[in-house]
Simulated scan of single mutants.
Amino acid sequence: MADTNSVNTSGLWTDYISGGDKSSSKLGSREVNSNLDKDAFLRLLVTQLQYQDPLNPMDDKEFLSQMAQFTSLEQMNNMNASVSKSQAFSMIGKLVIGTIYDEKTNTYEEVAGQVQYVTLKKGEPYLVINGKEMSVNDVENVYEIQLDSINSNVATSQSLNLIGKHIQTIIRDSSGTPIEYIEGIVNYIKFDKGTPILMVGSKEIYPSNVMGISNGNMLLGKPIKTEFGEGTIDSIKYINGEPKVIANGNQVDLEDLAHLSQAYLLVGQEIGYGNISGEVTGIELIKGEVYLNVGNESISYKKYTGIE
């Protein structure tokens, strides 16, 4: 005959994993959490001993087996914590890149910079980078470089801030003649003897040569009018040191690349020149010169800015 006063402990393990609490009347009603720490394991063992059947107590071998599991779990946790802290402290002074999650704004942010120091929160190490905290698990890249001076530190910090940004530059030969226009997104930074180099695709660009920075395309892909009609800028080429706009496969002369870049900044703005006023709706190239389209009129960019 079954003992009606005995306690059924068969569901204790399941109830505990389900978040059950002995003081709660809704045992097992909380969200399932399969990640048990050493404290949870010990509480399980104590609960199992407390509610064991006195007429059929736990076998010594079973008890020793569970104690061995507990000891192994504790050693693994201690080892993992030690390795994590060791990794964190080894990154002090190095340049790291990673992505952190902001619970307040529910957004992810890419953080890059030199690890200033390590702080511990509930035993977990966090890297402090420019005042922001990053878990070791969130680190994506680590760079070990020698910063010879404050100036190189500043240059590196500025370069890291360009990751993900659109930049433009002109490559010149040894005589200073322009030979190539480059525009694109900075994918990552590499270092040559401590000097940061921006990587745009397979192109290497020194930060000092950057002539434009933006969150989007500056010239490539922009709409433009030429003698061949309306189109978009496919590329910028240099032929004998002179810039050429390639739009829809057609090559068009360009007097000054800087004028073209600056003119696009006026698109969407209200301007006035002489008897003409209104919103700049587009850019046009006429015999190599940049013009602003305002309604049905075209205004020379050089005349509007007073360059000539």
Rank of each mutant, 00 (worst) to 15 (best):
L73A: 11
P178A: 02
V142L: 04
V83I: 15
K193F: 08
K132S: 09
N80P: 02
Q114S: 12
N137V: 09
K104N: 14
E180V: 00
S90Q: 10
T195I: 12
I97F: 05
V118A: 05
N80R: 11
V142N: 04
I163V: 15
I92W: 07
S90K: 07
E124D: 10
E74P: 06
R172I: 08
G176N: 08
N78R: 13
S149G: 04
Q75K: 10
N137F: 01
S159F: 05
V118L: 05
H166S: 07
L162P: 02
N161S: 15
K121G: 03
T99S: 11
E144T: 15
S82H: 09
M134A: 09
V96Y: 03
I92S: 06
I179E: 14
A81S: 15
V139R: 00
V115Y: 01
S86K: 07
Y101L: 09
Y188K: 14
I150F: 11
N137L: 07
I97E: 15
N80F: 07
E74F: 08
M134R: 07
E109Y: 13
I145E: 12
R172L: 03
S149R: 01
M79Q: 13
S86E: 10
Q168L: 11
V154K: 13
Q168E: 13
S84Q: 15
G184L: 06
E124I: 13
I163Y: 08
I171D: 05
F191W: 08
A81Q: 14
S159Y: 10
Y143I: 02
K85D: 11
L120Y: 04
K94C: 04
V139A: 01
G93C: 08
I170F: 06
E180S: 10
S84L: 12
G93E: 06
E103A: 13
N161L: 11
I150D: 13
F89E: 14
I197R: 08
S82N: 09
I167W: 03
S174Q: 14
G194Q: 07
V96H: 02
I197N: 01
Y126V: 04
N151I: 10
Y188S: 12
K122Q: 14
Y108S: 14
S82E: 10
Q87W: 05
A155I: 09
K132Q: 14
M91D: 06
K165N: 08
K122V: 02
G113Y: 01
G194H: 02
V83D: 03
E140N: 10
L198T: 04
I197D: 00
S159Q: 06
Y108G: 00
T169R: 00
I171F: 06
T195K: 11
S157H: 09
K132C: 00
E103W: 06
Q87S: 06
D173C: 03
S174W: 02
V136Q: 01
Q114H: 06
Q168G: 07
S84P: 00
K190V: 12
S82T: 14
M91I: 05
N130S: 15
E124N: 12
L95E: 10
E180G: 02
I163T: 04
V128N: 11
T177A: 09
D138M: 06
T119R: 12
Y126P: 00
G131Y: 02
K104Q: 13
